[in-house]
Write a protein that binds this DNA or RNA. Structure first.
Length: 671
DNA sequence: CTAGGGTTAG
């Protein structure tokens, strides 16, 4: 504390201080970032007449730079007769620390033009960081080239900044090349690669790099831990997460709140709330992130009550929620009453203008089937950010408003909002729902021009759209344009089911075999698609063979969908007894779909005996589905038992189900 | 003097 007498003595001291003393004081103020004291000393030097010394002015500028006081720093800097590389570096660092990356790059240009000095090994990390933050990949590459010719390319600091820059710009291959060429790698190099791979969607690679790092015997630090734990959580690698936990306790890295928070999050994502709670309770200084991680953990594990309770406790402990806390809680809300309550709460917390919160509110209302309220939130915000638009788009899709979604996207383009991958994920299903060829061709053109089509996810969507429109040639063309090693399980599934849904069983099966042959392992969904294709096209032996392949070669547990396909397949072929036998050997209770498939087959082949059994089951499982009654009536009609058909109609009426118009039953019976 | 690092929506 500064008492008045102390201040006085200090002032006295300063007045009599020599220039050297000023300089050493400034150095101290710079390292401790004491702006007030720097300002005081600035005033002193003016009154003491010392400011004529350019050495002192330079130190003063330097102190202001370290304190981040841009106006004075810049003015003093500009007035200096000559500037060293060190001063330029510090100026650029100040700009970078204030988020003024473009200013930093301008300062670099001035440095080159000044003729006083050249960039050094300290300069490059700063300007490369600026490129990284601005995603200026082109300029970043230029700096990369400059470092290589200037020999600073072999400095670990410089290389580390390049790793981060490439990772930030989504160029993980480029980062890996720099990493591979490094002669010496620090712990920072490894950490940058781990977090970089995770940020670029390669969580598995991130874990691989971490394992390599441990194998190499590199000492891990806090940053390693907080880089690797999110990847463990994402991949639900609980065992590895526990090993990292043990390792960090061993090395005494577990004191920082950030590390404990990362642990809470990891355990929560691995569905181990007991361990998450244990870590959480042991955090001495819980911050808003600790609380949010725990709250979000409960939400992820479907314990909304505990999440809300914890949120209450947090507030009684004096910690205010932030936008992330709110977004997390909103994501768990699926009813309008709570939703409106929470909306009010976000307004009271003054957080309703944050982009994440707006996005979450839009999403929440859409989940409550109130797209009108989503739209209310949406229109009341000045939105040129992409996320709220995406939320609005996906909200439309979830509520079946395909045309509205497409209209919204057009508005988005008109207003100059930059669409991204998530935009496409929300938008493209709209075209698949509409299944209208001309608009689909239009969006295909847009996707080609904008470059989105080169992404495998988008290409998969477009294949699906063309399939739904019935344009299998176009679908196949896009499919063929994808290199074989890029084709994943999803794109194969879509093309198989595309051919399947239009009755081209042979092509579907042939594509399925190509997929297996190319080394992509089929999953439950692909088997459903191909079995469905077989039943649709009447390929009985093929279908049974594939079912066998699925059980024996792939050791898969068949789902209800698979049984439905096979029952349908056998049933259509008239092998009703086999179908019935299969149902009786099922390891779980058959669903209405399975019995429904059997009933449908009985109708085709006029088998009343089996049909009645099937009908009994479907009536029990979905009593309100009128289609089932109609099927049974149709069956009776098919074998000429008109009275029974009429009785089924009465049965429907007795249950009070008049949803089906009378004529549909009559039509059905008359076929 | 410089490089990496915790919670979140679509």
């Amino acid at each position: 504390m500064n008492g008045p007498s102390q201040t006085l003595s200090k002032t006295k001291h300063l007045l009599t201080a020599t220039r050297t003393q000023y300089l050493s004081l400034l150095k101290h103020y710079a390292s401790t970032r004491s702006l007030t004291k720097t300002k005081q000393l600035h005033a002193q030097t003016i009154t003491a007449g010392h400011l004529s010394s350019s050495r002192l002015r330079s130190s003063l500028a330097d102190a202001y730079m370290h304190c981040g006081y841009i106006p004075h720093a810049r003015k003093l800097f500009d007035e200096l007769p000559e500037r060293s590389a060190l001063l330029y570096n510090n100026l650029m660092t100040m700009y970078v620390n204030s988020g003024l990356y473009l200013h930093a790059l301008k300062a670099y240009v001035e440095m080159l033009q000044s003729g006083f000095c050249l960039p050094d090994n300290y300069t490059y990390p700063i300007v490369i960081k600026a490129c990284s933050e601005l995603s200026l990949l082109g300029l970043g590459r230029v700096f990369h080239g400059q470092t290589v010719v200037s020999m600073f390319g072999s400095y670990t600091y410089v290389q580390n900044s390049l790793l981060a820059m490439y990772m930030n710009c989504g160029k993980k291959e480029a980062a890996q090349r720099v990493f591979d060429a490094m002669k010496e790698r620090s712990v920072v190099s490894w950490n940058t690669m781990i977090s970089g791979y995770f940020k670029n969607g390669c969580a598995k690679t991130a874990l691989m790099v971490f394992n390599q790092m441990v194998d190499f015997g590199v000492e891990i630090d806090c940053a390693t831990v907080v880089s690797v734990l999110p990847a463990c959580g994402y991949l639900r690698e609980l065992e590895l997460g526990r090993r990292v936990h043990a390792l960090l306790e061993d090395k005494g890295l577990g004191k920082k709140t950030a590390v404990r928070n990362a642990l809470v999050d990891m355990y929560a994502k691995c569905n181990s709330m007991a361990e998450a709670r244990l870590v959480f309770d042991r955090i001495d200084e819980k911050d808003v992130i600790s609380w949010t991680s725990m709250i979000n953990g409960y939400i992820l594990n479907d314990d909304v009550r505990s999440a809300l309770m914890l949120c209450r406790i947090m507030q009684t402990e004096g910690i205010r929620p932030n936008s992330v806390t709110i977004a997390s809680i909103l994501s768990a809300c699926d009813n309008l009453r709570d939703g409106c309550c929470l909306h009010g709460w976000t307004i009271r917390q003054n957080l309703d203008l944050e982009v994440i919160v707006i996005t979450s509110l839009i999403d929440m209302y859409a989940k409550c089937h109130r797209v009108d309220l989503s739209f209310g939130v949406f229109t009341r915000t000045s939105t040129n950010r992409t996320a709220p638009w995406n939320a609005m788009l996906s909200g439309c899709i979830h509520n079946g408003l395909a045309t509205e979604a497409i209209g919204l996207f057009k508005q988005m383009l008109v207003k100059g909002v930059e669409p991204d991958g998530a935009t496409m994920n929300s938008l493209l299903p709209a075209y698949a729902i509409l299944a209208d060829l001309q608009p689909s061709k239009n969006i295909h053109g847009y996707l080609t021009r904008s470059g989105f089509l080169s992404g495998i996810e988008v290409a998969t969507c477009v294949i699906d759209i063309y399939s739904k429109c019935g344009s299998l040639e176009s679908a196949h063309q896009i499919f063929n344009a994808i290199p074989i090693d890029v084709k994943d399980i999803f794109v194969w599934s879509v093309i198989v089911s595309g051919y399947g849904m239009h009755g081209h069983g042979e092509t579907a099966v042939s594509l399925f075999r190509q997929m297996v042959w190319s080394g992509v392992k089929p999953n439950e969904v692909t088997f459903t698609s191909v079995l469905h294709a077989c039943s649709h096209a009447g390929l009985v032996d093929e279908g049974l063979c594939l079912f066998e392949f699925m059980l024996k070669d792939h050791k898969m547990q068949p789902h209800d969908d698979h049984y439905t396909c096979i029952v349908d397949l056998l049933g259509r072929a008239g092998r009703l007894d086999e179908a019935y036998d299969l149902i009786r050997t099922m390891p779980f209770v058959p669903s209405h779909a399975v019995w429904g498939a059997l009933l449908g087959a009985c109708v085709i082949h006029g088998n009343v005996e089996v049909g009645e059994v099937a009908a009994q089951h479907v009536f029990e499982l979905e009593p309100e589905n009128t289609g089932n009654y109609i099927l049974l009536a149709k069956l009776y009609a098919a074998v000429g038992r008109w009275e029974d058909a009429e009785n089924v109609r009465h049965m429907m009426n007795d249950i009070g189900l008049r949803k089906a118009p009378a004529h549909s039953l009559i039509d059905a019976v008359n076929i």
